[in-house]
Amino acid sequence: MKRKFLRRVVSGLLVLSVVAAAFTGCGSASASENSSKDSDSASYRTLDEIKESGTINIGVFSDKSPFGYVDENGDYAGYDVYLAEQIGKDLGVKINYVSTEAANRIEYLQTGKVDIILANFTVTEERAQEVDFANPYMNVALGVVSPENAVVTSLDDLKDDDEVIVISGTTAETYLTKNYPNIKLQKYDAYAEAKTAFENGNGVAWANDNTEVIAFANENPGYKVGIASLGEQDTIAPAVTKGNETLLKWLNEELETLGSQQFFHKDYEETLLDTYGADYEETLVVEGTK
């Protein structure tokens, strides 16, 4: 019986070491990949490869109205998707939409699951180290929404037990973690879950992109955006896998051309006007600037 136990322990240790070895293996492999980053790395497809295959994979949100969502007919729609459609048209390829969550946008690019992320991806320094951003097509800042009867107007007023809802992998989460380490965060995987939880009365406030919280407060009576602009003004841009220069260059040219045609004003009027009204048009839209 002792022997069997020993055997068990040894096999357990073996499993551990195999796993460790596998991971360090991965680690060194990707390190060497970084040092000699050439076109032979298979994690992205170049512009020509995409054109040749006839389909482009674009990662969008499926639950973030009005930027990327699935409409009543089951089709993708929204501000981001409007741009995606145009990209597909100008490239002359079919679009395969891949539904993403905030937290896996970078991974999807790094593993080559998508060619472009158009999921309301805010440009940040940390992210720019992992992926390549094209020129921006929208402005954004953070905002905080709370119930009308207990509006949060400053994050310094929160009590120790108060929890703020954030979505895992968003700029709101990073910003609060960095600048307000004492605030308790209640983290959710996806927009839909955070929204339901907030409506159910979990958390005293919900911090997210201000576009999102303004839309939420407009659509749901009883809620008020107490803090409309928190932190710095950021931009939203398409992202491609790090090093995918051909696609990046094409995207930038595309955004420039579209900008000169005032494409994003049209996009705003088609997709965002109902939610935000005309007041936010000039604040949100960016046309072909570097």
């Binding site: 937290a103 896996n104 991974e107 992210r127 895992s168 992998g169 989460e173 990073t174």
Partner: peptide, 10 residues
């Protein structure tokens, strides 16, 4: 998942 989302050290 959360750490990957924030810092991308997969």
């Amino acid at each position: 998942k959360d750490l990957i989302g924030m810092y991308a050290k997969t």
